[in-house]
Computed example of a mutant assay.
Amino acid sequence: MATPLTADAFTRALRGEGVHFVEHGTWKTHNRNHMGPWGPVHGVMLHHTAGTSSLTLCRDGTAALPGPLCTGLIAKDGTVHLVGYGRTNHAGSGSTAVLDAVVAERTPPPPGPDAVDGNARFYGFEIENLGNGRDPYPAAQLAAAERVSAAICRAHGWSAASVIGHKEWTRRKIDPSFSMPGMRTRIEARLGVKPVPAPQAYAPFPGAAFFVPGRRSALVTAVGERLVAEGCGRYTVGPGPVWGEADVLSYAAWQRRLGYVGAAADGIPGRASWDRLRVPVVRGSAS
């Protein structure tokens, strides 16, 4: 039982555990807190998406189930996409007996009747998978689920017993489609050792002169992908590796997001706006 971590303390915990994550838009304040309290929190709940290309769905939800639908989406490559923070529509109602077990940090019993609001009590993470028993969970993805869960447990002083699956919370669900006892064993082992941080590496600013029409570089693609992630993409095709008009329009949208106007929002990266975009290091970024 604990007060939820602040968003900044949460990201520090992820970095400390070596989690590779991407922040999407105003995720730190994107939540459903107006529908009820978030906290005190008792644990972490893991899910699978039962679909593909789920980033937009996890962030925005649907008319029937408004987003965000989780704190983060764990992609196949192990990247954790942060889409919301606070109360999110991930857990729904679940078992009082299971919540009592999580609070006591013991193995959960089979779920009883739905009676408790889980959205108020758990951090929630969706894991990209069809959930049909044939779609694999790559090693990097399972490692990310382990690291994310351990990061939160370590920050709160919880044991691995504070991590449950949606299928353990309610009889209505079957996710995630992997062994939760096995995942808790992994988390327990990780909590027993000091984490080796793997700091997020961002590409250094290459200078405004780098961004000339026709410049070809993997870095250009990475810039475009970050702009799309921030909701500033103005692409009909791409983004791709060649710097062009769509990249300029997209970067100008990012500059305006940051408050730049007029000539200061010309679509050519400057150091200050570049540093805030946080473009990851990529291989083959030379022209």
Results as ranks from 00 to 15, higher is better:
Ile152Pro: 06
Ala50Val: 05
Ser217Met: 10
Asp266Leu: 02
Phe10Val: 03
Phe211Ile: 06
Ala115Ser: 15
Gly61Cys: 10
Ala150Arg: 02
Thr62Glu: 07
Tyr251Arg: 00
Pro109His: 09
Val116Met: 12
Val98Glu: 12
Leu65Arg: 15
Arg172Trp: 00
Pro4Val: 02
Glu17Met: 11
Gly192Lys: 12
Arg184Gln: 11
Pro40Ala: 13
Thr71His: 13
Arg87Ile: 04
Pro204Phe: 12
Thr107Pro: 10
Glu128Cys: 11
Leu249Tyr: 04
Gly244Phe: 10
Ala91Asp: 06
Gly78Ile: 07
Arg134Phe: 12
Ala144Gly: 02
Ala209Thr: 14
Gly36Phe: 08
Ala75Asp: 11
Ala91Cys: 11
Ala222Ser: 15
Leu142Ser: 02
Asp77Leu: 03
Gln255Arg: 00
Asp175Glu: 15
Arg257Asp: 10
Thr52His: 14
Ala140Lys: 05
Ala161Arg: 11
Ala229Phe: 09
Gly214Asn: 14
Tyr137Asn: 03
Pro136Tyr: 13
Arg276Glu: 15
Arg106Leu: 06
Leu14Phe: 08
Val102His: 05
Ser53Thr: 12
Gly214Leu: 14
Thr62Ala: 02
Gly207Trp: 15
Phe205Glu: 07
Leu69Asp: 06
Lys194Leu: 14
Leu227Asp: 07
Ala208Leu: 08
Val98Ile: 04
Thr11Pro: 02
Val228Thr: 15
Gly244Leu: 05
Val248Lys: 12
Ala144Leu: 03
Ala253Pro: 04
Ala208Thr: 12
Ala151Val: 08
Ile164Val: 15
Tyr137Gln: 02
Gly84Ile: 13
Arg106Pro: 00
Ala208Val: 07
Asp266Val: 04
Arg32Cys: 00
Pro181Ser: 02
Trp169Ala: 02
Gly165Val: 08
Ala160Met: 11
Thr185Ala: 15
Leu69Lys: 12
Asp247Gly: 12
His20Pro: 00
Ser285Tyr: 13
Arg184Asn: 04
Val163Asp: 08
Ile268Glu: 13
Glu146Ala: 00
His48Val: 08
Ala161His: 15
Ala115Gln: 15
Ala140Asp: 14
Thr79Gln: 05
Trp243Phe: 14
Ser217Gln: 09
Arg278Lys: 15
Ala145Ile: 00
Val19Ala: 10
Val237Ala: 15
Thr52Cys: 05
Arg283Thr: 15
Gly238Ser: 09
Tyr235Met: 06
His47Ala: 03
Gly67Glu: 01
Ala145Gly: 06
Gly36Cys: 09
Met180Gln: 09
Arg257Tyr: 01
Met45Gly: 07
Thr185Asn: 11
Ala189Val: 04
Ile164Asn: 11
Pro113Trp: 14
Gly61Glu: 01
Thr52Gly: 14
Gly36Ala: 10
Glu105Val: 07
Leu130Thr: 04
Tyr235Arg: 00
Gly182Val: 11
Gly39Phe: 05
Ala145Ser: 09
Val41Asn: 04
Lys167His: 14
Ala50Gln: 13
Ala160Lys: 11
Asn33Gln: 11
Gly112Lys: 00
Val281Gln: 13
Pro199Phe: 00
Ala264Phe: 05
Val261Tyr: 06
Glu126Lys: 03
Tyr85Ser: 00
Val41His: 09
Tyr123Gly: 01
Gly72Cys: 10
Glu188Ile: 08
Arg190Val: 08
Pro269Phe: 13
Pro111Gly: 05
Ala209His: 09
Lys76Met: 08
Phe21Cys: 10
Gly131Val: 13
Gly262Tyr: 08
Gly192Val: 05
Gly207Cys: 02
Pro269Val: 13
